[in-house]
Amino acid sequence: MAEPASLQAVIRTCLDDLAATQTLSPRQWQVCHHVLACRTAALGGFALRCDQCEAEAVCYHACRDRHCPRCQRRTSLDWCERQRAALLPVTYHHVVFTLPATLNGWIEVHPTEIYDRLFETVWATLSAFAADPKRLDGQLGMTAVLHTWGQTLTRHVHLHGLVPGGAFSASGEWHPAKSTYLFPVRALSRHVRGGFVSRLRQAAQAGGLPRLTDPKEIDRVLDTLMRTEWVVYSKPCLVHTETVVDYLGRYSHRTALSDRRLLSFDGEFVELSYKDYRDGDRRKVMTLSGAELLRRFLLHVLPKGFMRVRHFGFLANRCRTRRLPEIRAAIAALAATTCPVTAGHEAPTPTFDGYPCPSCHTGRLRVRAALAPKRRDGG
């Protein structure tokens, strides 16, 4: 009987095969073991019993690893709920900055350094454009999310940003952007390219990229980057203000691979569903060996502790509590009507009343005992 198609099944079957052909980092091993243990006896859980028909069931704990496709939906919903207090009654803009594939080799050996400089350069570019008196003449805000994958799980590093359409001036005024226009993407592309290459060159000269040891090769790569047209995307989010956070939530905690994209797994080969953006966004299916799918998935394991969601400008955590009321006042918006959830008026958390019973469909499964984590057999 074929193994059910899931990332957990692929790891269980193919991890040893992959490890035999390439060296995995301690962090990659850790993520694999977390996904393997997710919602199994290895993490413990609860024994449940229906209060009507006496049916029994078991509920195991989740691993809560940010790379696990089973654990991110609840995290994403919770994150979105916290962000609603920062909403402004303006048009938001979705911007995307993509790194050229030329940098993939450097990302392999220095991911933290490259990713940090991408965040830094994108924000420096957008804030400089916003501060220009000929444009918005004020401080911008942005929530940025790093993605490292494409639809086929190859390395495709890009930064999603959600930007309120306007800037807050030093004199306390709100300068709105045009509803369908933020900044020219060609100018953004050139500015980001120059700033990013300059930061990489400085880092290499200061020894911040120690695994890159050939000065001529460093110069060659940087010169190639300067001759490449960088891809920048900008589009207004023409949706209701209250749904903007949900829009970003689709990106904030998305994992490189979801189980629903795995159509079948026979123990050796996997059928992967993907969207082909070069062919009218058509849904297609590709077949990969389980080891190859796992290799591609592990390309996107982030360094431990790395912050892939960051807030900048007047949305930065250190100043948003003070800035947002000032901005709302500046754009003459009443907090009670423009902010779905305001400080001190959080939606009440529902009281847990057990799980619906799948047997009788009328009772509730309630916890009768806690189950300790079960050690795996073997050495």
Rank of each mutant, 00 (worst) to 15 (best):
A2T: 12
A2K: 13
P4A: 14
A5R: 10
Q8W: 07
L15C: 03
D17T: 14
L18T: 12
L24I: 04
R27V: 08
C38T: 02
R39W: 10
L43M: 06
C50W: 08
C50Q: 04
D51V: 08
Q52D: 13
V58P: 08
A62C: 12
P69R: 09
Q72V: 14
T75V: 10
W79N: 06
W79E: 07
W79K: 10
C80W: 03
R82E: 15
A85W: 03
P89F: 05
T102L: 15
L103P: 04
Y115N: 01
V122A: 11
L126N: 00
A130M: 00
L140F: 00
H147V: 11
H147M: 07
G150P: 04
L153K: 09
H156Y: 14
W174T: 01
T180N: 13
V185R: 11
R186Q: 14
R186T: 14
S189P: 04
R190Q: 14
H191T: 11
G195E: 04
Q205L: 15
A206S: 15
L209Q: 02
P210G: 02
D214F: 03
E217K: 15
T224L: 13
W230T: 06
S234H: 05
L238T: 10
V239H: 06
T241N: 09
E242A: 15
V245T: 12
G249Q: 05
R250T: 05
R250C: 07
Y251F: 07
Y251D: 03
S252D: 03
G267P: 12
G267W: 05
E271D: 11
L272K: 12
S273R: 15
K275H: 08
D276A: 13
Y277N: 05
G280F: 09
R282N: 13
R296I: 08
L299G: 04
F306V: 01
F306S: 00
H311E: 00
N317M: 01
R323L: 08
L324I: 07
E326C: 09
A332F: 09
C339L: 11
A343F: 09
H345N: 14
T349V: 15
C357H: 02
S359P: 02
T362G: 09
L365P: 07
A369N: 11
A369V: 01
A369G: 06
L371P: 03
D377G: 11
G378V: 06
